[in-house]
Amino acid sequence: MSLESVRRYFATHAPDIEVIVTEKSSATVPLAAEAHGVEPEQIAKTICLRAGEQAMLVVACGTARLDNRKFKDRFGGKPRMLDAEEVATLTSHPVGGVCPFGLPAPMPIYCDVSLRRFDIVVPAAGATNAAVRLSPERLAALTSAQWVDVCREPVAATA
């Protein structure tokens, strides 16, 4: 089970970080922000992409959008979103719970600089109702992520 792989990951690598499971769904940025009492921008969404043959995870500010030109300049190809089945196969996590923790096999992980403006971000934790709270720097360190600039400036969420 995906949530269990994330719990095992944190038990081993960062036992001080609690996996928070809510009754409410946090499968989308607005739902996650509501469930965890933060602004949508603080949700660290994880996107599973492919550039050419290389699959990767990009973690970005909840309201940020990929910039195709920046992505292509950085990775040499246009970003292609993976479908739900490919995402589950590569990450073991369901869409809405995808995160860079507890993966079945190593894969490249990138954190977009849009996360750096926050002291705390809230990425999913392997289920559509689970998340963790941590600093962007800790997120990058725990996942051996590289920092990249591949998103457009975050847009404020609208009600």
Rank of each mutant, 00 (worst) to 15 (best):
D67N: 15
N68Q: 13
R69S: 13
R69V: 13
K70F: 04
F71C: 08
D73Y: 07
R74P: 09
F75T: 05
F75P: 07
G76Q: 08
K78M: 15
K78G: 08
K78L: 14
P79Y: 12
P79N: 11
R80E: 11
R80T: 08
L82C: 10
L82E: 01
L82M: 12
L82Y: 06
L82N: 03
D83K: 12
D83N: 15
D83W: 06
D83P: 04
D83F: 11
D83A: 03
A84W: 04
A84L: 02
A84C: 03
A84T: 10
E85W: 08
E86M: 11
E86R: 12
V87Y: 02
V87K: 02
A88C: 09
A88F: 14
A88T: 13
T89A: 15
T89G: 09
L90M: 13
S92N: 14
S92L: 10
H93I: 05
H93Y: 12
P94H: 09
V95F: 07
V95L: 13
G96F: 08
G97D: 04
V98N: 03
V98D: 01
C99G: 04
C99A: 01
P100E: 08
P100S: 11
G102I: 00
L103S: 01
L103Y: 03
P104H: 06
A105L: 06
A105C: 03
P106Y: 00
P106D: 10
P106H: 04
P106I: 00
M107D: 05
M107R: 08
P108W: 00
I109L: 04
I109T: 11
I109E: 00
C111D: 02
C111N: 06
V113L: 06
S114M: 04
L115G: 01
R116A: 01
R117V: 00
R117I: 01
F118Y: 15
F118N: 02
D119I: 05
I120M: 11
V121Q: 01
V122P: 02
V122C: 12
P123I: 06
A124H: 02
A124C: 06
A124R: 02
A125N: 11
A125L: 09
A125E: 08
A125D: 07
A125S: 10
A125Y: 07
A125C: 12
A125M: 08
G126P: 11
G126S: 09
G126N: 08
G126W: 10
T128S: 13
N129L: 11
A130D: 13
A131Y: 09
A131M: 07
A131W: 09
V132M: 04
V132C: 08
V132H: 06
L134P: 08
L134E: 04
S135T: 12
P136N: 11
P136L: 04
